[in-house]
């Protein structure tokens, strides 16, 4: 009697354990798949940055765009640093890949960051910095994408320029020249990966940077009144406002 009971109990347990497996075989999506991004093997991760202005693909001058404040804006240069790409796994352990990337609109290869040898794992979020962390920012001159020869470096006040937007505005084509830098002005973007159910050894993510947000954000920039140049990380007039606006510039649009 006792033995029989135990056997039944075991059978029920066994079937219960198998049930989800059977069910998932029939369904379109496997419920046993991690509800996030699962990298298999030592996989690769590709981040593709797409540049937009008000939802339209960004094109350099002579193409023009309209800001929310009604300014006509032409862009001639967009460049920025992406660093400290960090993956967080399901247990909450964060892995900083410790890489630094200069992205420039005119260099199409720079807009795709491919990172290989990513440890296999189930990842629930990804974050990265738009800018350079203060430690590296004050470690003097570096090589690679951080070579000051790219011009993204203040030579009179040691430090990297995190984000550069140059262009013209209005009928008179007055210059716009924003250099965002200084330790206080990096932005960390954190994107949840849950709900995606992607399992692959080559994961690709699409990110949109919309420059209209730079001029709109929470702080509307009106170029008729506001400063249209900044070249110092210590500026207190427009830089803190732009820095805040930049927090809304990036969206993660697709993972596959």
């Amino acid at each position: 009697m006792n033995r029989q009971y135990r056997l039944t109990y075991f059978m029920i347990l066994f079937i219960t354990a198998l049930l989800p497996g059977f069910y998932s075989c029939n369904g379109e999506e496997g419920d046993d798949e991690y509800n996030g991004v699962e990298l298999t093997g030592t996989g690769s991760l590709t981040l593709q940055f797409n540049h937009l202005f008000g939802g339209k693909p960004l094109k350099y001058a002579p193409d023009s765009f309209f800001s929310a404040a009604g300014d006509t804006i032409k862009i001639t240069k967009l460049a920025y640093y992406v660093s400290n790409i960090t993956l967080e796994n399901e247990a909450g352990v964060k892995t900083n890949l410790n890489t630094y990337h200069l992205i420039t609109e005119s260099v199409s290869s720079s807009k795709t960051i491919t990172l290989s040898n990513i440890p296999a794992g189930k990842y629930k979020s990804i974050s990265f910095m738009l800018g350079i962390d203060s430690i590296r920012n004050h470690s003097g001159v570096q090589d690679g994408d951080l070579d000051p020869a790219y011009g993204m470096f203040w030579t009179w006040n040691t430090g990297y320029i995190f984000f550069r937007l140059i262009g013209r505005f209005g009928k008179a084509d007055k210059p716009i020249s924003y250099d965002v830098g200084g330790d206080k002005h990096s932005n960390v973007f954190n994107f949840s990966l849950t709900g995606n159910k992607v399992k692959s050894n080559q994961v690709q993510m699409q990110l949109n940077m919309d420059l209209a947000e730079f001029f709109t954000g929470p702080n509307m920039i009106n170029l008729q009144q506001d400063a249209h140049e900044v070249h110092s990380g210590t500026d207190t007039q427009i830089l803190p406002r732009l820095h805040q606006n930049m927090k809304d510039m990036l969206t993660l649009t697709n993972i596959q």
Binding site: P148, A149, T158
Partner: peptide, 27 residues
């Protein structure tokens, strides 16, 4: 303005009212 002796070198080379050269050109 310079955080270390190495970075200091960049200032005079690139300053328009000093040596007025780009680092890319020098290299």
């Amino acid at each position: 303005g310079a955080a270390d002796l190495e970075s200091q070198v960049l200032g005079p080379i690139t300053n328009p009212i000093e040596m007025n050269e780009t680092l890319a050109n020098v290299v």
